[in-house]
């Protein structure tokens, strides 16, 4: 008996539709977000995360309406990330029915924003999203760096040190995406997942690279993640959330079935 590890399906949303790109190229339409969220809810998802990749701020209103619609029908925690830059953005998403918001690039350019947001809304709703890439060569001591702009721009920030700093500033949870793995279906970068999970006292969600159910098991057992996030393996019907939970349970992981 105890706390269960979580499975979090992630919906990348562009202008009101669920999409999934392979390393941000080749975007495939994966349906209506409300319908997709309801399907995952019925399958036993522990939370749902939306990543708003809408380019223009005009279309953000679409995202607010989408969150409202989903929050009226799906009674599990909802996280919204993408384009969260101000306390006003956070307030708008929380009022629409989000339980947590993900702060990514804005945290890199203005770490004080994380502190301000945590003080105003509470750490429980502030998820700091970290996009990391391995920068050490084979044979060297492992080192991961924070990247922005979809993994194109290096920042010089060490990923583990950055995660610790974000927790000090008030992050209640860390969403860690391995940018070299995202969309590859080769599995999480377990090294960085474990390094960060062991370095901080808040929960860590592993993301980026899930291609099969064993990857989810590895994320928890080898990567020490508290939750695992995946998108495409669920969107296109390869696996259901239920099947994923069963596999993790069979591997000895405590899950909510």
């Amino acid at each position: 008996m105890g706390l269960a590890k979580r499975i979090i399906p992630c919906l990348d949303v562009d202008n009101g539709r669920v999409v999934k790109g392979v390393q941000f190229l080749d975007i495939r339409d994966a349906g209506d977000p409300v319908e997709v969220a309801k399907r995952y809810d019925e399958q036993g998802a522990d939370e749902i995360t939306f990543l708003d990749i809408t380019a223009s701020s005009d279309d953000r209103a679409t995202t607010v309406h989408m969150v409202e619609a989903i929050a009226s029908q799906v009674f599990i925690p909802l996280t919204v990330g993408g384009g969260i830059r101000t306390c006003e953005d956070i307030r708008r998403m929380l009022n629409a029915g989000a339980d947590k918001v993900g702060i990514n690039t804005a945290a890199v350019f203005n770490p004080e924003f994380v502190r301000e947001a945590a003080e105003r809304f509470g750490s429980q709703c502030i998820v700091v999203a970290i996009d990391a890439k391995k920068v050490s060569a084979e044979g060297e001591v492992d080192k991961w760096e924070i990247f922005t702009h979809g993994g194109r721009k290096p920042t010089g920030l060490d990923a583990v040190e950055w995660a610790k700093k974000m927790v000090e500033y008030g992050a209640g949870e860390i969403l860690l995406t391995s940018m070299d793995r995202d969309g590859t279906k080769n599995g999480f970068d377990l090294g960085v997942t474990r390094a960060i999970s062991e370095a901080v006292h808040v929960p860590v969600i592993a993301s980026g690279g899930v291609g099969n159910l064993d990857h989810l098991v590895d994320g928890v057992i080898k990567g020490k993640a508290d939750a695992v996030l995946a998108a495409s393996i669920f969107h296109f019907g390869e696996y259901t959330v239920q099947e994923a939970k069963q596999r993790m349970t069979d591997a000895g992981i405590e899950m909510r079935l």
Partner: peptide, 21 residues
């Protein structure tokens, strides 16, 4: 506490976040 531990001494995350019985 930030150094909260399970009965076996392993680290437990705080906040207590997720689904528990």
């Amino acid at each position: 506490g930030e150094k909260h531990k399970d009965y076996d001494g392993s680290k437990l995350k705080v906040p207590h976040m997720g689904w528990n019985q």
